[in-house]
Measured scan of single mutants.
Amino acid sequence: TTIEWNGTKITVDNPQKAKELAKKIAKKLGLTVKVHGNTITIE
């Protein structure tokens, strides 16, 4: 699972952990999480 935001890509083996990490990042930055299959985008 890949997390993408602002040109940065982070690959996380565990999809559940990836989703939790994305939510934490999005919350800190005041952004939203969008899931597209194996890609999680923070916008």
Rank of each mutant, 00 (worst) to 15 (best):
T1R: 07
T2G: 06
I3D: 10
I3A: 05
I3C: 13
E4R: 06
E4P: 02
E4D: 14
E4G: 04
W5D: 07
W5H: 11
W5L: 15
G7V: 08
G7S: 06
G7H: 06
T8E: 09
T8D: 10
T8N: 14
I10F: 04
I10T: 02
T11S: 08
T11W: 15
T11N: 07
T11H: 13
V12W: 02
V12K: 01
V12A: 04
V12Y: 04
D13T: 12
D13N: 13
D13E: 12
N14I: 04
N14P: 06
N14K: 03
P15K: 09
Q16L: 11
K17L: 14
K17G: 04
K17M: 12
A18D: 00
A18Y: 03
K19T: 08
K19M: 15
K19I: 15
K19F: 15
E20F: 06
E20A: 14
E20T: 09
E20Q: 13
L21P: 00
L21H: 02
L21K: 02
A22H: 00
A22Q: 01
K23P: 01
K23M: 13
I25C: 10
I25G: 00
I25L: 11
I25S: 00
I25M: 06
A26P: 01
A26M: 07
K27Y: 03
K28T: 07
K28A: 13
K28P: 02
K28R: 13
L29P: 07
L29C: 15
G30W: 02
G30N: 06
T32Y: 03
T32D: 06
T32W: 02
T32L: 09
V33S: 02
V33P: 02
V33T: 04
V33E: 01
K34I: 13
V35F: 10
V35D: 03
V35T: 06
V35L: 08
H36Y: 04
H36F: 05
H36E: 14
H36I: 12
H36C: 15
G37L: 05
G37W: 03
G37A: 05
G37E: 06
G37D: 06
G37K: 04
N38W: 02
N38F: 03
N38K: 08
N38S: 10
T39C: 09
T39G: 03
I40K: 00
I40F: 01
I40Y: 01
I40T: 01
T41F: 14
T41I: 14
I42D: 00
I42L: 15
I42S: 00
I42G: 00
I42A: 01
I42W: 02
E43Q: 11
E43A: 11
